[in-house]
Every structure is written in C-alpha cells, then in structure tokens.
Amino acid sequence: MLEAKLDAASQLKKIVEAIRDMLGECNIECNETGLALQSLDKSHIVLVSLLLGSDGFSEYRCDRGVTLGLNINSLATVLRCANNDDILTLRSEDRANELILTFEDSKADRISEFNLRLMDIDQEYLAIPETEYAATVVMSAAVLQRTLRDLSALSEAVTIEIDKEGIRFSAEGDLGKGSTHFKPCVDMENAENSINITLSEPVSLSFNLQYFSNITKASSLSSTVTLQMTAGMPAQIEYKLPSGHVRYYFAPKIED
C-alpha cells in the first residue's frame, strides 16, 4: 500500500498545475523510493518526467509497488478542494481501484476526504538516452517564462541560440521581429538571477512557443530552470524540486 503525507497541499497542487495542460491520463508509479511519472503530451511533442523522492514527503510508506492510473485533470479538480496550507495525505491499498486524498487543516479540526477512481492505463514508456548536452544554461525560471511570453506576441516559434557570449531568444512574425539576449552573469545578492552557461559547442534550436509556455507553468516550482540543448535533439528543461524534479523533453522544430 501507499501512504504519503505532505505538510502543504500547495506542493502537489503546483506540480499538477505544471503538467495538467499537457497530460490526460497517465500512470504514477509508486515504490519505496518515491513517486514517478513519465508521459507524452497528447501530440507527442513533449515528454514529461516527474520524480518525487520519498524524502520530499513528511511521511512516506510504500512497501510494494503501486501503479496509480489517473486522469490528471480529475486529480487537479480534487486538489482544488484543498487549501494551500492543508496537510495532504495520499493513500491507496494494494490493487485498489481508488486513491484516497485527505486534506486537514493544521489544527486538525477539519478533515476532508476524496476518493479518486483509478484506471487501467495502457501506457508507452520511452527509453531516454543518457546524453551529454552541448549547452547547459541555468537561469531564473521567471525570466525564462517572461521572455517566452513576450516573444509569443510575435510568432508561434522561438529560436534559442547559445554560445559563449550568452543565450539569445528570437522570434519573427508578420508584425516584425524581436529578440532578447542574456549575457552570463553572477548576481551575488539574488543567486536565482544569475545566468550560468556551460558549453562544449554553440547550439541553435527552434521550438513551438505554445508548448514552451505550457512547460514554463512549472516556474512556480523552482526559482531557477536548467535548459540543456544539443543541435538536432530534444531540449531537456528541468525544474528542481526539494527532492526530485519535473523534467520536460521538448522536440524541436527542424528545417526540412
């Protein structure tokens, strides 16, 4: 059986909000090390990989592997009934057909319980190759989100170029073109505003901005984001969690 407790429901609410627009139904695999999810978005352009280590929970118990087949939007609907600072417990018996969620306020004078029906989901799992990326950029998650939002007013696509001078985002559409360039920098006072670039060779890739904007909904999970790119390959975009991560593998647009 699974029993996992979080001190603040907001932790799970934010994670689910970060993935719900892309995913429909998917399996969450639970074992003694934690919860894991791997799922393709509906159009197979983004692969979402979520890891929630058992250390990230205030209490965690899962003696035997449990697969939770869930509709992510149903989970989001139920989580909306929890206050952000509620204590949240997830429970599921072995081979059960439901996930039980309880939300308690800190004084424990209110307890809500919801049972979410589980589904048998036939899911494809992809092997993600171990990759040494040509460029790795660590930057503010909020700045990335803002930059992409600005450029989405111009075009459906953004081109990202990374070289030793910095990272450049550009877009071109009917009304004209625009770009934002960030130089590598260290901000001693606000470390999350630093831009760190590690590079073995310069890279340039283009991506759909609608999908990118869905990915950056994870910005509430972490102050920084790690963007990794290699020419002609999917980008890896990672938001670190206190114990685990939300990772997106994002297929580029490639010139025919």
């Binding site: 393709l40 197979h44 992809l126 999917p234 647009k253 490639i254 010139e255």
Partner: peptide, 14 residues
C-alpha cells in the same frame, strides 16, 4: 521550412 518533430522520433520504446 521548419517542421515540428515528435519526441517519438528521437526516443524509442525499450
């Protein structure tokens, strides 16, 4: 011109 690739074109099923 630019064509949207799918993730399944890069990663395979084990």
């Amino acid at each position: 011109r630019f064509k949207q690739k799918k993730i399944t074109g890069f990663f395979t099923m084990p």
